[in-house]
Write a protein that binds this DNA or RNA. Structure first.
Lengths: 206, 206
DNA sequence: ATATAATCGATAAAAATTTATCGATTGAAA
DNA sequence: TTTCAATCGATAAATTTTTATCGATTATAT
């Protein structure tokens, strides 16, 4: 149970999946969906689906119909905070950093990528209209846009150093793509996005 | 509890984090680490750490010392199946697909990326020695290398179609980067890697 | 208007996971 | 050699999460 919201962590972890599913259904023109159908399509249990939704959505499900898709989407997005926009930066403008920089799906999640930063002069410039600055401009940018969150997309060997620079610049939340444990002071939160580990888990059925 | 192994799903989900941490410690020349130190460094509880490790590692912890890092790493990697190598393919050779294709950290996880595939003729060629083939060659490649797992890195609008082609070619495990719910027949497993959702969760503290 | 079947929400039970407690072990120091 | 403090492993308790049960609701068909 998540003290602040009264919604379990397990439920919160599943909400993005509901959103993905519900948006797909909406795109097909469906208006209502029952917990049983959702459960079947997503590989959950119907009771679990109802429990997940009960805490997040104000709207109750209608017997014989199920849940109103549009309302669910709105409530889940609101709950997850996809409404208020957050500015983020990327450190590392190699292949991965640039790919993330050019991804245009962040807006729907209330995220705006302000810029990327790189140590190498050859990386400086712009990608699809988003600027790539030298690391020297990190602090200034973070301060000006009041950025709290950053994506770390540098090679493993540079990860801790780049992480330190981000924190020094004022970043307090880091999403790291480097398979390297990061030491950070209290107050800074790190999450790891280990693509290789995810893939290996899939391959090996973990 | 994970029926087959006797190790809880929650524990399995944490194992990559242990690995990341332990490898970092090993790189610094440390040989032993106690559950208390691990817990503190990783934000877990000491009892939890001991419980996690007890099922995965054959080696017991030594009072006054803690756990032998090298042994833990070996046992966790073995448990997660990082030893036997799996071939995988990538569908979609845009910025993200190419970034993944050029990532050289997969080997440590027992993963070998065979090739990427793309519909667009301009994407065909090679990236850092890895070939990018036209979609027509997907089935042939999957069959020849007995590939089971694939990475889906195409735009949202093409996701379901590309997914269908992968399944048609014989892929049964898909790691999708597209924020689109995929309908797949039973026997096919999909995992979603929704970067925007992960980032939003970090920003909003979910 | 009534019966029916699908569906929900609430409550209870079961299972999984985390946290607490405490005696046992072990190397180091007195 | 004895004591001591750090650390573990095992057991138990508490908490969280999932699953089951069942009466209540509501559109549809008769």
């Amino acid at each position: 149970m998540n003290t602040e919201s009264g919604i379990s962590k397990a439920t919160v972890a599943r909400l993005p999946a509901y959103l993905r599913y519900l948006k797909g259904a909406r795109a097909k023109g469906v208006e209502y969906v029952s917990s049983a159908v959702m459960a079947s399509d997503m590989g959950y249990s119907a009771v679990g689906v109802r429990k997940d939704l009960e805490g997040v959505s104000s709207k109750r499900g209608k017997p014989r119909f199920g849940f109103e898709i549009a309302a669910l989407i709105a409530d889940i997005e609101k709950f997850l905070g996809y409404k208020q926009t957050e500015d983020v930066i990327i450190v590392g403008a190699g292949a991965l950093g640039r790919a993330i920089l050019s991804y245009d799906g962040f807006e729907k999640y209330g995220i705006r990528v302000v810029a990327a930063f790189d140590r190498s002069p050859t990386a400086i410039g712009a990608v699809r209209g988003k600027p790539v600055y030298p690391m020297e401009r990190l602090r200034e940018t973070v301060e000006r846009h009041k950025v709290k969150a950053g994506i770390l997309a540098v090679p493993r060997a540079s990860a801790q150093g780049a992480c330190d620079e981000m924190i020094e610049a004022g970043i307090t939340q880091i999403l790291s793509f480097a398979a390297e444990h990061l030491r950070v002071p209290t107050g800074v939160e790190v999450r790891y996005e280990d693509l290789a580990a995810s893939l290996a888990a899939l391959c090996n059925g973990n």
